[in-house]
Design a protein around this nucleic acid. Structure first.
Length: 317
DNA sequence: CAGATGCCCTGGGCGC
DNA sequence: TGCGCCCAGGGCATCT
């Protein structure tokens, strides 16, 4: 093996959750005074300056996360009561951001997906200069600004009325239950997996089945569950589903606790520029060619569907 | 028709 | 130093 390859650390559920919590801690209730766009459109969903300008005069009333999506509710002409409850119950509204936003009285939604290289930064408007590839800047009262920086422009920011969420951002509405707060049970996970005979990792990555998992966390979950990525999803025994369920809970909880994974390229930073530390607990992702922490076997990398999976050929069955 | 595969978007690391 | 290959992941088109 050559020198350690720089891997992108892309934002998945734990990283987006960390950013969402950061936003709640600093931006709720603050008035939006100005919005600037770079004029360089997202590759996915361009934001017109007219749409962006609709935010001016509003206040952030809620910051939700659904899978890898951030959804901020913006209210006009009313005071914000206070921070929303941090952990909403797993009721039907959990999957319906429009309903959640309505409860907060939001008349506009700012939807952000960080894509592969997107970052949100909270900065003093008079402080550090804006980095290259800053595509959206929202200036709040008190001289702070929220910067959306995205070199590869796979991410997007969109401003839509809550009632148009379903038609304008269909993927958001089509998300399956969230990997962290979707109310998953062993039974519902087993049912979801048994509906498909596609390869297990394909199903775990399918945002319409489980929302929030990406390449890093699926590899970590599968390693801990000791199950191969290419098993047909409907071939798992009950014991294996239970292991997968536990691994998903543990990995996501710990990764959120450690504020996500920041790898060598430092692509992911939280709202305030700090790295996460779950990368120090990675057992599979990025470790191809290194020894398995469980059995010592050399971890193997395989490519499918244009991406790499790292796993232990001996203890993942 | 479910599942698999290929392609596209982009910038940066790195090899030559 | 500079050029060009390759990689990353999500969405979608197109196959089998």
């Amino acid at each position: 093996m050559g020198p350690a390859r720089r891997k992108p650390s892309l934002p998945e559920l734990p990283e987006v959750e960390t950013v969402a919590r950061g936003l709640r801690s600093v931006a709720l209730g603050k008035e939006i005074e100005a919005v600037e766009t770079s004029g360089v459109p997202s590759n996915r969903l361009p934001l017109t300056s007219a749409d962006a300008a609709m935010l001016v005069g509003g206040r952030l009333a809620a910051v939700l996360r659904r899978g890898k999506y951030l959804v901020a509710g913006v209210v006009f002409d009313q005071t914000v009561a206070g921070p929303e409850p941090l952990a909403p119950s797993a009721d039907a509204a959990l999957l319906d951001p429009a309903a959640d936003l309505a409860r907060h009285g939001a008349s506009l939604a700012l939807v952000i997906h960080l894509g592969m290289s997107g970052q949100l930064r909270w900065a003093d408007a008079t402080g550090e200069p804006r980095p290259p590839h800053t595509h959206l800047v929202i200036t709040f009262s008190a001289g702070y600004e929220l910067r959306f920086v995205d070199p590869r422009r796979f991410g997007f920011a969109s401003v839509v009325p809550p009632s148009s969420l379903a038609s304008r951002i269909t993927a958001l509405v089509g998300l399956g239950p969230d990997a962290m707060q979707g109310g998953w049970t062993i039974e519902s996970l087993a049912a979801a997996l048994h509906r498909s005979r596609a390869r297990l990792k394909t199903v775990l990555l399918d945002q319409s089945v489980i929302a929030g998992l990406g390449n890093i966390y699926t590899d970590e979950i599968l390693f801990r569950a000791r199950i191969r990525w290419d098993r047909p999803a409907n071939s798992l025994s009950l014991d294996e589903v239970m292991r997968l369920f536990s691994a998903m809970q543990e990995v996501i909880a710990k990764a959120v606790d450690l504020r996500g994974s920041t790898l060598a390229d430092a692509q992911y930073r939280d709202l305030f520029g700090s790295p996460g530390s779950f990368q120090n607990h990675h057992l599979a992702y990025g470790r191809a060619g290194l020894g398995c922490h469980r059995c010592g076997e050399i971890l193997q990398a395989e490519r499918f569907g244009g991406r790499t999976t790292t796993f232990c050929p001996t203890c993942q069955l």
